[in-house]
Nucleic acid binder design. Structure first.
Lengths: 129, 129, 129, 129
DNA sequence: GTGGTCTAGACCACG
DNA sequence: GTGGTCTAGACCACA
């Protein structure tokens, strides 16, 4: 799996990493028990510091996306997390802000949902194959 | 309009401010030519630093949501912005990450779009009235 | 509140810090809304690195013992956590190992519980006062 | 005796090993002169590194729980250790941190001692039989 | 060779 | 001045 970091972005590197790995899982580029490169390896590959990768890995661990096995390093884990109420609330708050801006800019509900659909469809397509 | 700041949130205060004002516009609590409290006033009311309010106001101005007039202070301006390609790309990237996480957690497309719909409907309902 | 770090200990500094702050809360040396020294201040006082303090603070935040307020830094929060099943299981596993060793060394149940009692009593005594 | 290792645990494997063997002794699954599998054998059975088993065995030897004989391998030795002052101090410090957290989370002394009791009772029950 | 811990020092976002 | 992020480099525990 190819990870691309935008060093100019406002989004912190460790978050870009985390997000891309989650996207990798969503589109089945990464599946259960796949192992991720070691902290040092990945850091070197991307050209960033070890600690930055470490932070991303640890957040992914806390969120249940990967497990840190003492022998094998980081491996993708079966995502056991369900849609909790807490998560739904967080998501809803986040979407409120996103949609408010889109709505003010004149985007229609249909167009917005179309964008969401195409992303979902992309993930589902890859899941089936 | 009531602004509520969560000082423990990870979201910076100036962004909370900006988002809530945009949401206020979306749900027509704030309409064209309404004037916002002065920077000093709002800062004092909420109990935050003047610079923080200033930053939020300036971002809103840059995005075209308000105008800053030396005499009248900040006033809501007519929804000026259209859905640019640039904005759509930014939105798409943002949604990719959000949906990847939701998808991994097992949320279905329908449930996700339901959440979006209810937010849109809320804004539209208020627009009609 | 006085924090004492044993640099010779096997227990990582950030854990010593975390534990001592929790003990401080237990014996009411630290109460709700008390604010902790800034990361840099505490680091300087103890003579350790900022990041080490930061790690301790962040773990305490994750466990709900403190809140990180954007304006005031770290403040003790009302401990909202209840005794979850998960926590009880973790505790039980931990105690199994501790007690097995004590038991093998010939310590009697009464003596062990006496030790626990005196610690509990100490915390309760300070709570009442 | 069945040894179960959790490779994702934060507790190092050699400690899990050591703890489980001590627990085995406490509940009389392992009694004096029982012999443990050879380092190589156990390492292979569990699928871990030989050095890891070695480390656990050596710690157990240092604590007097087993003897290492070149011919017979590791054998359980007669419970040798008494409750030294040093051990009691170590135990007390450890329990202070454990109880502080439990106390802050709202666990009552009775509930805590109940947990300890049931573990002690389990060990004693097996000792009598 | 792996991750965990710690240090030192830098820049930036935030308030 | 605060915490957040990132870098660079070191040592250690673990396997």
């Amino acid at each position: 799996m190819l990870l691309k970091i935008d060093f100019e972005s406002e989004v912190p590197i460790y978050l870009q990493l985390k997000n891309q790995i989650i996207e990798g899982i969503a589109q089945k580029e990464l599946v259960e028990n796949d192992s991720l490169p070691s902290v040092r390896q990945l850091a070197e590959d991307i050209g960033i510091n070890m600690h930055t990768v470490n932070k991303a890995y640890n957040m992914l661990k806390d969120d249940g996306f990967i497990k840190l096995d003492r022998r094998k390093g980081a491996v993708i884990s079966r995502v056991p997390c369900r849609v909790t109420e807490e998560y739904k609330n967080k998501l809803q708050d986040e979407m409120k802000a996103v949609i408010a801006e889109a709505y003010c800019k004149g985007m229609k509900e249909e167009e917005f949902k179309e964008i969401c659909s195409s992303i979902f469809k992309e993930y589902e397509r890859r899941t089936e194959s």
